[in-house]
């Protein structure tokens, strides 16, 4: 068992583009669920729209990388409007059902062979890196130390992703400490009370859905930035994983979603390396290496349940400011 390799992979996952992508999506869910109380179960669709919007506009329409990102973000705004206008009048649990269904519709639209020319259907999309890499200011070479040794492109993706994440966290912090954020938190507590005070609750919920949706789309883009757009990623369990990261860190916090994503990916990577290694040296005689990969996801489910039951406020949340009581 190569302990050093296992630790190195785990360390590397802490700043992986996938981790940053999750953190952005979790910030979006913090906006939706943690602060506004909107049980959006369709975050995977916002991420898919970001990623596909980025890749398709580059591959099919020859956009530069930043144009592709604008298309991805614009697409998520349009999706938020289409999703929000009919559904935001619904009460919490109905919203969850409708968003889950809408996310499946989006995923199947990207998966169907009808649009194969644009979406690559089941194969997904790749080979859109040229424009983004051409903008890389870092000279060629390998940098870093220990587990964090990457080439210029590897660093460019990570630095860009972290910068976007920092910007998103700043925006979320800035709006949530303002009177706008006060209205949003009021809506989470009791939207009728806020309406009785003369606030247009529907408009605020739509704004929240759009802002969080943009974070989700950027998360999808960063996730797909170094490699490919794979339709198998944007399934409903992606939304559940992002929720796990969010609840781990604290749903109604700014840094919770980020720390939660880092821990989520750290533990996932550790288990995905450690469990097969333990099977191979005979420490887990009752399972095969393939089974051990499934066990990993079972553990995620168990962790989510334990979290919601025993520490609903997450790692960073205020014990008094729970979001599940009531």
């Amino acid at each position: 068992m190569d302990i050093l390799q296992i630790l190195s992979n785990t360390g590397s996952s802490l700043i992986a583009p996938a981790t940053i992508g999750y953190a952005l999506a979790a910030l979006g869910l913090a906006m939706h669920f943690g602060f506004t109380g909107l049980l959006n179960m369709g975050m995977a669709a916002f991420m898919a729209i970001g990623a596909y919007g980025y890749a398709i506009s580059i591959l099919t329409f020859g956009f530069p990388w930043w144009g592709g990102m604008l298309v991805g973000v614009g697409g998520s705004l349009v999706f938020a409007l289409i999703l929000g206008i009919p559904t935001l009048r619904l009460r919490g649990d109905y919203l969850a059902i409708v968003t889950i269904a809408a996310a499946e519709v989006v995923r199947l639209l990207f998966l169907t062979t009808t649009f194969d020319k644009y979406t690559g259907s089941a194969d997904g999309l790749s080979g859109y890196h040229e424009s983004f890499r051409a903008f890389n200011p870092i000279p060629d070479g390998t940098y870093g130390f220990g587990p964090w040794e990457y080439n210029a492109n590897g660093w460019w993706v990570r630095i860009f992703g972290i910068a976007i994440l920092a910007l998103a966290a700043f925006i979320l912090w800035a709006v949530m400490r303002s009177p706008w954020g006060r209205v949003i938190k009021g809506i989470r507590e009791d939207e009728d009370a806020v309406r009785a005070l003369g606030k247009n609750v529907f408009s605020y919920k739509l704004q929240s859905l759009m802002l969080g949706g943009v974070f989700g789309a950027m998360g999808g883009i960063i996730y797909a930035l170094p490699a490919s757009v794979n339709p198998g990623v944007y399934v409903t369990s992606l939304t559940f994983f992002v929720y796990t990261a969010l609840l781990l860190g604290g749903a109604a916090t700014i840094f919770g979603p980020i720390i939660g994503s880092v821990i989520f990916w750290g533990v996932q990577t550790l288990l995905s390396n450690l469990l097969p290694a333990m099977v191979n040296v005979g420490l887990l005689p009752f399972m095969t290496t393939t089974q051990s990969q499934t066990v990993r996801f079972i553990l995620v489910g168990v962790a989510l349940m334990l979290l919601v039951i025993y520490r609903p406020q997450g790692i960073l949340g205020n014990k008094k400011e729970l979001t599940f009581v009531k």
């Binding site: 009177p179 706008w180 938190k185 009021g186 507590e189 806020v194 008094k320």
Partner: peptide
């Protein structure tokens, strides 16, 4: 609004807030 402070509850009541 239980998870807002008493003061935040009050401030929420004011109309025509620029920061909203």
């Amino acid at each position: 609004l239980g998870l807002l402070t008493v003061l935040e509850n009050m401030k929420l009541g004011a109309k025509d807030q620029i920061g909203e």
